[in-house]
């Protein structure tokens, strides 16, 4: 994987989305997990599981978005060459 994109606010998707490469990964965290309700595409998509659960999204998360634990978060950081954070 090339770049891991962290998205912590829904509004940041607008800036992040056009810059996704197919080999990239996106991890939705904090309020960014509300994006898991929407039809997203452009890269491998993950959402931080405790943030999803806290917000009542566990049963609502789209099927193309994988829940990720904090250990999974660390593994994504390992596998990607760089991390970029999108906030708004």
């Amino acid at each position: 994987m090339a770049t891991l994109h962290l998205v912590n606010k829904p509004a940041a998707w607008e800036d992040c989305h056009p810059l996704l490469d197919a080999e990239d990964a996106v991890l939705l965290i904090e309020d960014g997990t509300y994006l898991a309700l929407q039809a997203l595409s452009g890269a491998a998509l993950y959402a931080l599981e405790p943030d999803v659960r806290a917000r009542g999204l566990s049963q609502r998360i789209r099927s193309n978005i994988q829940p990720a634990s904090f250990d999974d978060f660390v593994r994504l950081v390992e596998r990607c060459e760089r991390v970029v954070t999108w906030s708004a």
């Binding site: 912590n8 309020d31 931080l48 405790p50």
Partner: peptide, 18 residues
């Protein structure tokens, strides 16, 4: 929320041997 997310991330990274 970022301070807490960072703290949890750091703890997991240490736990995985980083």
């Amino acid at each position: 929320a970022g301070s807490r997310t960072a703290l949890r991330f750091a703890a997991s990274a240490l736990g995985l041997g980083h």
